[in-house]
Design a protein around this nucleic acid. Sequence first.
DNA 1: CATCCTATGTACCGAGCGGTATGGAAAGCG
DNA 2: CGCTTTCCATACCGCTCGGTACATAGGATG
Lengths: 211, 211
Amino acid sequence: MESEADLIETAEAAGAARGRPRQFCADTALAAALQVFWKRGYEGASMAELTDAMGITKPSLYACFGNKEALFRKALDLYERDKLAYVQTALEAPTAKAVAERFLHGALALQSGGDDPRGCMGVISAVACVNFADSIREDVMARRASSDRAIVERFHRAKAEGDIPDSVAPEALSSYLSAVMQGLSVQAASGAPKEQLEQLVETTLSLWPGT
Amino acid sequence: MESEADLIETAEAAGAARGRPRQFCADTALAAALQVFWKRGYEGASMAELTDAMGITKPSLYACFGNKEALFRKALDLYERDKLAYVQTALEAPTAKAVAERFLHGALALQSGGDDPRGCMGVISAVACVNFADSIREDVMARRASSDRAIVERFHRAKAEGDIPDSVAPEALSSYLSAVMQGLSVQAASGAPKEQLEQLVETTLSLWPGT
DNA sequence: CATCCTATGTACCGAGCGGTATGGAAAGCG
DNA sequence: CGCTTTCCATACCGCTCGGTACATAGGATG
């Protein structure tokens, strides 16, 4: 009970392994759960659909991951680690415009290509969980707030370095970039064609202030 | 059964009115239902919360509005009629930039002020209803597609009138404006302070291409 | 082989969902 | 007044939800 954060690792790495061993790969199952949460949102994903996609039964899921909320949090961790890797590299770009470029192209590649569901899981979860002051909602919002703070700090540095004109505040530009990316996510989730999303990214970059 | 569209009007306007008259105002009850749907989304709003907010019982609701889906559609009609009135006036603005200005200020006023819930009901419903190929979802998307088409046409006219530089396609600019407004809606729904949303609007307008 | 410990499969729980049957209450009409 | 017609309130329906009890399967250890 007390070691919620690393249930998967301990269960696999511990040398003991007494009793009957698990008959499925926890990481693979978690990746399958992520796909379901990503597509349906937290409340839209039922335990039946989750267990079906993961290929395990409900008692196995509860024994391995705790409950639905804990499973969602682990899926969110996996999402940030695997799918949002471009955020770190984007923040390291040399200029403010290059940061925006990497952010937008990263979001575009993530949300409009490959076999993953369309749209950003954070946006979907944040908007779809308005239902009550959930701890889930607080978690998602906290993660996004931390990401926003990183962008604001990066743009402050960019302003000091002359990348951003004086007429634009770093906080405003950060909120603006977030808004475009959230709009990109909404349109991607709504099934907009890839060409339209590319146009959106290029238009945003062509209007970007500074270097 | 066959006159679904104007159940409210007929029940009130018909001179007959045989039998016991209704003991609540259908328009007021629908406005209350709109608030609930707006705040919770379609699936997040339960019949219990709806009837509670509307001040009527379930049989009254079903007799007057049909079922949950029909009630939602009527609430969506009311939303478009009362809350999205600024869309029409925005499209009549003289230049493309003036159109964007009216759109953004209208969305800002709607989503960050007054007693109404934050965020755009269309965005909330579209994102929160990814659950299955619902007729609800199709309806919401069709309404938004119609609005998008109107903006594209307006921007085509603007291009012909020289409001938009040659380097920017009307479709791209329309998608861009929609994205910013969707991002505005996401941030408003997440509880962003009004000042931040105002900054977002001003930044967008300051970057707007053309006149 | 016997034993221990854990995972698995089935079948189930209480709660809440959208929707409805039914009996009584309130109005117009003769 | 009686009668018809409609609305309201209670109580209920079948269903799905997240979560669990229990018996069994199965590998490591002696």
